[in-house]
Design a protein around this nucleic acid. Structure first.
Length: 882
RNA sequence: GAGGGUAUAGCUCAGCUGGCAGAGCGCUACGUUGACAUCGUAGAGGUCAUUGGUUCAAGUCCAAUUAUCCUCACCA
């Protein structure tokens, strides 16, 4: 009837089996169930190009902990899974695979390219999902979605059209970030700024019809090919006389109007700025204010185009070199100084981004940002930790319009059609038949697709069926928590909030639970290029998913980065092994499968009451920690309780009863042992789902699966305050005995005798009633309680606890000097404690203002320490005068 | 330029609403006691970055300083 376990914890032996068990029994499945309260988390959809990395492992562990916990608490829990089409990343992969065949995108054309992309997705896109299962993710796989499936694509089109009709999406020629490698535009969020040391070239621009020159300073001389003006500050006396005049662009000989604009900082550089509206965001604005023409001098691969005269065809860096050379030769360079500045790079391929003007689609952000800011400011959406709300608000308050069109094929194609006849734009679901403006009937759809993040922004409601009014949407929305890293706040969290507010009229989630990055042991970011990544799947193979999850959940506080150490993984695995063996011990000593609580309750021993009471407190504390998203604290408490109290003490304490002849006593021990273990397995299950399930199913006293067991509740009637206190006293005494033995190098002998001199009746009673604990845990065979010092042999080592003095008489001569030394140490320790307590109590302020309970505790301590000191002093005296 | 994080044992980090500094690993000394050597017992090791302030009481709250790491930002 009782199962038997292997001696060692071997997760490989059961993790897959347990996962299948859950899936087969539909334990991850969420239904619309009005009888229950819903709890929903949407999984941040991993890219179909992705492989599970440590960042996912952390992110998913936190979500799975929350989901499993809430499931056990009786909520109808939905962890909504899915994947993201990852427009750029996937397109790059498909282009790469075509390159092996010697083909390019243009060779195969749009339609064939998309076929290939879907094929790629079918082949590789599910990989990460399989990896997630290894980690134990309890997602409802029957509801898995993909950002480009029919329903989600429909949602994207709906959103685009609605925003367009509302005037919140527009097409315009604006300056955007261009990646010359990916050959597409990027949003501001997709550009990463890196500090670079470059040069500041001071170039003399001659003034027309004058001998004067205007010295400008630039970090990017190649863009001068697109200069259409020069600007100075209106209040700058040095240049006032030049405003309105014309400068001549060196090498190109274009005439440039000199304008005055507040944007120019007279203190910086020379106070005169060349204006290149097509290749600099600021210049673009200056250009708009002064009606300067835009001259784009670059191709989509950042080589110089036909507007660049003799520099045509060069890369921007070649052009820079050539231009600087030419300027030097012709005497236009005044000086060159070194200068550090920020250069934007593509977040996908790290190529330096080129700002340039282009026709693109934009989302007008201001009207959308406002309610999103409000939602966080008035606490409808709450960040954990709270400080990230600042980051969020600050970003939204300074946001610029969002460039959403991408010059790619893999993604949601923009539902905009251009009339072949008049160029009129019609935005709608299907291709129009007749132009509403000119009556023409030929149309061409916009070639571009949408930013990947445009579809992920809808994830919390599109996955639940929106724009259809589904019962899932009705029941699970708004979702409860979003779990993600701080690096994704701008890309995703922000956009989900404003999209949800706009289209659902409600927040997408109540809490945003933010975690940090998983770094390597040296604190570096894990990255493919550094090759320092630790593969979670390899870790799972070797140590088990539970050990990995435990490691990630422990010692990690919200919002902070963590370093990944293999040593910690080992410690987690050892903990699993400990639990495994504790359960093995229980099973080995369990010869029945049901014990009626009522039949044993009256027979609880001190140890039973103590562990039950402790369990109860742990239940309360752990649940409170979970409620506050303090998962690391919760799991730490479980670790301490399981290892430090249940295993180290309780299991040792029950052994005599288990091995004894008295069946009634045995039953009580068995009951308590299993009762506490069952609760341990439940409490630990969200963190270590596999091992707890495996052990649970080996326990004959329980049915079903722990994944759906009821989360333990705190019970007031299972708090035994006196038992905790008395057990504490006994534990203290036992630790003291062990301590003096270790320090005096006394190996316990079988017939060791313990003499206890008690001063308080109560203490004597507690000790005599629980003598057996001393036998088992302090290795003494006989205990003698005395009230008179005379009975104490001279050759004994001693320890004092509150209310009693413990003596271990020794058969062989002890080292008196060593014992004196030890007691002296004890004495000074006690003296300093007494000094501290007395100091505190003689402080008028403390006694009058501190809580009475605290003052009382201090008084108790004083009495206890003083009594202990007296004993130590007496003992010292007798040793010295022996 | 703005905002933020971090600073606690040799190492990596916990420490919630102020009330005798904790864990893991490492280290030292013991230990073949019928769950576990992936273990047990005991121990050493901290001016909680610095300086002020609030308080009866500060690792914890406030201010400043130093170091370090992020994020954002148009200074050509």
């Amino acid at each position: 009837m009782t199962g038997s376990l292997e001696k060692n914890y071997e997760p490989q032996a059961f993790e897959n089996r347990i996962y299948n068990h859950w899936v087969e029994r539909n334990h991850f499945r969420a239904e619309v169930n009005p009888e229950k309260k819903p709890y929903c988390i949407v999984l941040p959809p991993p890219n179909i190009t992705g492989e599970l990395h440590m960042g996912h492992a952390l992110d998913h562990t936190l979500q799975d902990v929350l989901i499993r916990w809430k499931r056990m608490q009786g909520f109808e829990t939905l962890w909504q899974p899915g994947t993201d089409h990852a427009s750029i990343a996937t397109e790059v992969k498909v282009v790469e695979s075509m390159r092996e065949e010697g083909l390019t995108k243009l060779d195969v054309g749009r339609e064939d390219f998309l076929k290939r992309a879907w094929r790629w997705k079918d082949e590789y896109g599910g990989k990460i999902v399989e990896q997630m299962k290894k980690l134990g993710d309890s997602c409802d796989w029957s509801r898995e979605r993909f950002t480009m499936d029919e329903g989600l694509s429909n949602a994207v089109t709906e959103v685009f059209i609605k925003l367009y009709e509302k005037g919140l999406i527009y097409r315009g020629n604006r300056i955007i970030n261009w990646c010359p490698e990916c050959k597409t535009s990027l949003s501001d969020a997709e550009v990463e700024h890196e500090e670079q040391i470059g040069h500041f070239w001071h170039i003399n621009y001659p003034i027309k019809d004058s001998d004067e020159v205007l010295e400008i300073a630039t970090t990017r001389p190649e863009t001068m090919l697109g200069d259409t003006g020069v600007a100075v500050h209106p209040g700058d006396d040095r240049y006032k006389h030049l405003v309105g005049k014309t400068a001549i662009l060196p090498l190109v000989n274009r005439e440039l109007p000199i304008v005055a604009d507040d944007y120019v900082d007279p203190e910086f550089g020379t106070g005169a700025v060349k204006i290149t509206p097509s290749h600099d965001p600021n210049d673009f604005e200056v250009g708009e204010r002064h009606n300067l023409p835009q001259i784009n001098v670059m191709n989509d691969d950042a080589t110089i185009n036909e507007n660049g005269g003799r520099y045509v065809g060069m890369t921007r860096y070649e052009a820079r070199k050539a231009i600087v050379n030419d300027l030097e030769r012709e005497g236009f360079i005044h000086k060159i100084v070194s200068h550090s500045h920020n250069v934007g790079h593509c977040y996908r391929c790290d190529t330096a981004v080129e700002p340039l003007t282009s026709d693109q689609w934009f989302v007008k952000m201001e009207p959308l940002a406002k309610p999103a800011i409000e939602a966080v400011k008035d606490n409808r959406v709450k960040f954990v930790p709270e400080r990230f709300s600042k980051t969020y608000i600050h970003w939204l308050e300074n946001i610029r319009d969002w460039c959403i069109s991408r010059q790619l094929w893999w993604g949601h194609r923009i539902p905009a059609y251009y009339c072949n006849n008049c160029g009129h734009i019609i935005v709608q679901r299907e291709e129009p038949t007749v132009c509403e403006k000119c009556g023409g009937n030929g149309f061409k759809q916009d070639e571009d697709v949408l930013d990947t993040w445009f579809s992920s922004a809808l994830w919390p409601f599109s996955t639940l069926g929106w724009p259809e009014n589904t019962e899932e949407l009705e029941y699970f929305y708004p979702t409860d928590v979003l779990v993600t890293g701080y690096d994704i706040i701008f890309f995703w969290v922000v956009r989900m909030v404003f999209s949800a507010l706009e289209f659902m009229g409600d927040i997408p989630f109540e809490y945003v639970f933010i975690h940090g990055l998983v770094r390597d042991a040296e604190g570096r970011k894990m990255s493919k290029s550094l090759g320092n990544g630790i593969d979670p799947l390899e870790v799972i193979d070797e140590y088990g998913a539970d050990a990995l999850r435990f490691t990630l959940a422990t010692g990690n506080s919200p919002g902070n980065d963590m370093r990944f150490h293999m040593e910690r993984l080992e410690a987690s695995r050892n903990f699993a092994n400990k639990l495994w063996n504790a359960t093995r011990f229980v099973l080995m000593n369990l010869d029945i499968d049901y014990i009626d609580k009522n039949s044993v309750q009256k027979e609880f021993t001190l140890a039973d009451k103590w562990i039950i009471s402790r369990l109860n407190k742990v239940v309360k504390e752990v649940t409170e920690n979970m409620d506050k998203f303090e998962l690391g604290l919760a799991v730490q408490k479980l670790y301490d309780f399981i290892w430090g109290e249940y295993c180290d003490w309780y299991i040792e304490l029950v052994k005599p009863r288990l091995y004894g002849e008295d069946d009634d006593k045995k039953r009580v021990a068995q009951y308590t042992l299993t009762y506490v273990l069952e609760n341990i397995l439940k409490l630990l299950h969200p963190f270590m789902p596999f091992i707890t399930e495996e052990l649970w199913q080996n326990l004959p006293t329980v049915q079903g699966s722990v994944i759906v067991a009821q989360w333990p509740e705190h019970k007031e009637d299972e708090i035994y305050t006196v038992a905790e206190k008395n057990m504490g006293l006994i534990m203290d005494a036992i630790k003291n005995i062990r301590n003096i033995r270790a320090e005096m190098n006394v190996v316990p002998s079988r017939k060791a005798k313990l003499i206890i001199l008690t001063t308080g009746k109560n203490v004597a009673k507690i000790i005599s009633e629980n003598e057996e604990y001393f036998r088992t845990l302090a290795s003494v065979s006989e205990i003698e309680l005395v009230k008179n010092k005379d009975k104490i042999p001279k050759d004994a080592v001693s320890a004092v606890i509150g209310g009693a003095e413990l003596f271990l008489p020794l058969e062989e001569l002890i080292d008196f000097e060593k014992e004196i030394e030890r007691l002296e140490k004890e004495k000074s320790k006690l003296e300093s404690e007494i000094k501290r307590v007395v100091g505190k109590l003689s402080n008028e302020g403390f006694v009058s203002k501190a809580p009475a309970k605290l003052v009382d505790e201090e008084k108790q301590k004083q009495m206890k320490y003083e009594e202990m000191l007296t004993h130590v002093l007496e003992r010292l005296d007798s040793l010295k005068n022996r």
